[in-house]
Design a protein around this nucleic acid. Structure first.
Length: 751
DNA sequence: CGGGCGAGCGCC
DNA sequence: AAAGGGCGCTCGCCCG
């Protein structure tokens, strides 16, 4: 039985301290008032140094109206300083380290030894990564019965929060309102679990030969020296520019909206009928019951938004009436009532019921009212409303191009203006950087999708051009600082030329030629053209189109792209696409062999390893391969063999997809993952060097093959050289990497 | 009303 | 018959 203790008395405190002192490794977890590490407070923390044990030091308790101190900050500090002298294990360490520093003023970063999310990720890259989810997944190995207990501690706590009047929604999870005992036991359970998960995966890590990769070369150093500093310091944003952009784009959107409504009006006849019918169908959800409540003046509580709350409880307490029976779902309303409500509603229809950003509305209008044929269907077989369709009717309806403008402007506003304005804190945006969200070891981040600026305004709607090219200007280096921005030149092509060890591919880079042009020339057997950027007959200059084509397949083909997809992207017949693929692979025979070796590794050993050491597992592929052999990949064979037995056929198709995906992923992983390691290790090296030189600079953003470092302006030029050198030389491959670095004051200039 | 999800589109 | 990889965010819609 577990020993979980909530520390109240001095003797219990002594016990906790001794437990910490006697442990070499300590799992550590904070309980807090919320998820914002800068605004929220630590209300207590737990430790476990031994499986089955846990101690929680409560610092605050909820007394019904406010948080009341329990143990003083001096005691917290004393205990934390002991904890700090140990090797710490945390689940999602960035969060606990940052909130401990901000709220309790103790920096545990140097003591961080292992993040169990990352440990699990190194051994098992598949989701989920929540502590409880992991525990559940490996409960047999841990000797636990997590599901039988059904997370008792968590359920107890949620109940306790509710009982004390707290909210438990995702947006507003008021854990701090639970009883201290409940929080404490929950916290102890967490650190105990963290320790068990650590023990379990530590063994696996060693077995897989990943200790060095994890502790020394990449994972934990990246977490401690890059990820946590990057998330802590954030990126300054130009709040005034954001505010101005928000105001201006709203006006522009309103104007486009006005134009669309004006042009669309004559087409709306049938749509209007549909809308009126749909919106007013007798239903206990949506608009209808709202109107009914108003019509019948029902005494129901209202929500914050001023709408009636149609909860069962409230309805049941109403006096008996036909309305009550309807709302309870027992009877329909009389025709007269429905007619009254309808006329009530018609009088207050929105001026423009047509919602331009609703695909549903657009689909109704185009496919039903205007009888336009869809271009594509969704996976579920419904007519698809997308940009491809809108493109197909853009010449027929004047408002169609405006719809695209409207959608783009709205996307720009919500995703790239409103979001950053809402989330910035005192002029700093704090991005998330997750090391475990991608299988390849790339970062998963919410700051990696900033629009690329247009190179010219030609053919672009002026408003779309204006705001698209503004997005990167929101991110600024701030007073006395500058950005050093460096992108690797064609990182993935460099890496896969290196990995495949194809001399033809490698020669391209060794000669300093343009990759895509060379591939185009070799694949298509072009004569009289050069891949030398300085030559008069440089393909990129003479025939941009052919170079562009090569861009589509030179990376796609090694990742398993087939003639269908290639034909589609290039808009050429499949036969032509097939010819290109064959010629490409024949032009680079070692690449072809590497692809075959990758396939082999995937289906025989069930995993592949990047050169840098990261592993991706394909547990199912070898089993399927062993049972079915290579025929499993042949769709036509599968069809002829199994189509008369539909259920079995579905299963076989599923297996086929599984193997096919594994084979493609095995190839992609080795490239993408090595590229990620190259960038990640450069980030570590940059931060180390800046620290060594006592320059207050740091990697403040990373976008897969791009690193943006923020440095004091006075050191900008020196740092520019350092960044470039370290990107090009930290992780060496058999080709000379190139990462020209530039100085800029914002993300736009830096680009 | 909140949570989950598909579709679409942003990036490499 | 099925036909390249890795993500995150927003929207509308649907459901409980």
């Amino acid at each position: 039985m577990e020993v979980y203790k909530v520390v109240y008395s001095p003797s219990e405190l002594q016990e906790m301290i001794e437990h910490a002192q006697n442990s070499e490794l300590l799992a550590y977890d904070t309980e807090t008032t919320g998820l914002n590490v800068r605004k929220d407070k630590v209300i207590g923390f737990s430790i476990s140094g031994k499986v089955g044990y846990g101690y929680y030091l409560p610092l605050f308790k909820w007394n019904g109206s406010e948080l009341e101190p329990i143990w003083s900050m001096d005691v917290a500090e004393k205990v934390l300083n002991i904890i700090k002298s140990k090797k710490l294990i945390m689940h999602n360490a960035s969060y606990d380290v940052r909130i401990t520093k901000n709220s309790l003023n103790i920096d545990l970063l140097d003591s961080l030894y292992c993040d169990t999310i990352l440990l699990k990720h190194a051994c098992d890259e598949e989701r989920p990564f929540g502590l409880k989810d992991i525990a559940k997944k490996i409960q047999h190995e841990l000797g636990l019965d997590v599901s039988a207990e059904a997370n008792k501690e968590q359920l107890d706590m949620i109940e306790s929060i509710k009982a004390n009047g707290g909210a438990v929604t995702k947006e507003c999870y008021e854990l701090f309102k639970a009883d201290v005992d409940k929080i404490g036991i929950y916290a102890c359970k967490d650190t105990d679990l963290t320790l068990r998960v650590f023990n379990y995966y530590s063994e696996l890590l060693t077995k897989e030969g990943l200790d060095r990769f994890f502790y020394k070369d990449e994972t934990m150093p990246l977490m401690k020296e890059v990820t946590i500093p990057m998330e802590s310091r954030g990126v300054p944003v130009d709040v005034e520019l954001l505010k101005a952009a928000q105001a201006e784009i709203s006006v522009d959107i309103a104007e486009v909206e006005r134009q669309i409504h004006e042009l669309i009006e004559p087409h709306l006849g049938l749509f209007y009928d549909w809308y009126v019918g749909k919106e007013l169908k007798q239903s206990t959800t949506g608009e209808f019951p709202q109107l009914l409540c108003e019509y019948a003046d029902l005494d129901l509580p209202k929500t914050k938004a001023g709408r009636y709350s149609i909860a069962k409880k409230g309805v049941e307490s109403l006096p008996d009436s036909e309305y009550k029976e309807f709302l309870l779902g027992n009877a329909w309303l009389s025709k007269e009532v429905v007619a009254d409500i309808k006329s009530m509603w018609l009088k207050r229809l929105p001026e423009h019921p047509f919602n331009i950003s609703s695909k549903h509305h657009l689909a109704k209008l185009f496919f039903d009212t205007l009888k336009e044929p869809p271009v594509t269907k969704t996976d579920k077989g419904n007519p698809q409303m997308n940009d491809l369709f809108l493109d197909s009717v853009k010449d027929k309806y004047e408002f169609v191009p405006l719809i695209r403008v409207y959608n783009k402007l709205n996307k720009l506003k919500s995703a790239y203006i409103d979001r950053f304005l809402e989330r910035q804190e005192d002029g700093i945006f704090y991005p998330s950087y997750n090391q475990h969200r991608t299988i390849s070891g790339r970062y998963g981040s919410d700051l990696q999708q900033l629009n690329r600026p247009y190179e010219s305004a030609e053919g672009v709607h002026p408003a779309v051009y204006k705001y698209t090219n503004m997005v990167r200007k929101f991110f600024i280096s701030g007073d006395d600082h500058a950005f050093i921005d460096a992108d690797y030149v064609s990182l993935e092509p460099f890496v896969f030329s290196h990995v495949s060890n194809d001399n033809g591919l490698k020669a391209i880079f060794l000669n300093g030629h343009d990759f895509y042009s060379t591939v185009a020339i070799a694949t298509e057997g072009l004569e009289g053209l050069s891949a030398d950027k300085k030559a008069d007959n440089y393909l990129g200059k003479v025939n941009k189109n052919l170079r562009q084509k090569a861009k589509a397949y030179s990376l796609g083909i090694p990742y398993g792209m087939e003639e269908y997809a290639l034909g589609k992207t290039l808009n050429i017949p499949q036969s032509e696409a097939k010819r290109l693929i064959n010629q490409y692979l024949n032009a680079y025979p070692e690449l072809k062999k590497w692809m075959e070796r990758s396939n082999e590794m995937c289906v025989t050993q069930g995993y592949v390893k990047s050169e840098a050491g990261r592993i991706r597992h394909f547990p199912k592929a070898p089993k399927i391969w062993y049972s079915h052999g290579k025929d499993i990949l042949d769709s036509l064979k599968l069809w002829s063999k199994y189509h008369e037995r539909p259920k079995l056929y579905q299963q076989m198709k599923f297996l086929r997809k599984e193997v096919k995906n594994s084979l493609n992923n095995a190839k992609n992983f080795q490239i993408q993952s090595l590229a990620a390691s190259i960038t990640n290790r450069a980030c570590i090296a940059i931060n180390r060097e800046l620290k060594r030189l006592k320059i207050d600079g740091y990697v403040c953003a990373q976008v897969h093959d791009q690193i943006i470092t923020r440095v004091p302006e006075e050191h900008a030029e020196r740092c520019r050289k350092i960044v470039q050198y370290l990107m090009e030389n930290t992780y060496k491959i058999s080709l000379p990497l190139s990462a020209p670095a530039e100085i800029g004051k914002d993300f736009y200039e830096a680009h």
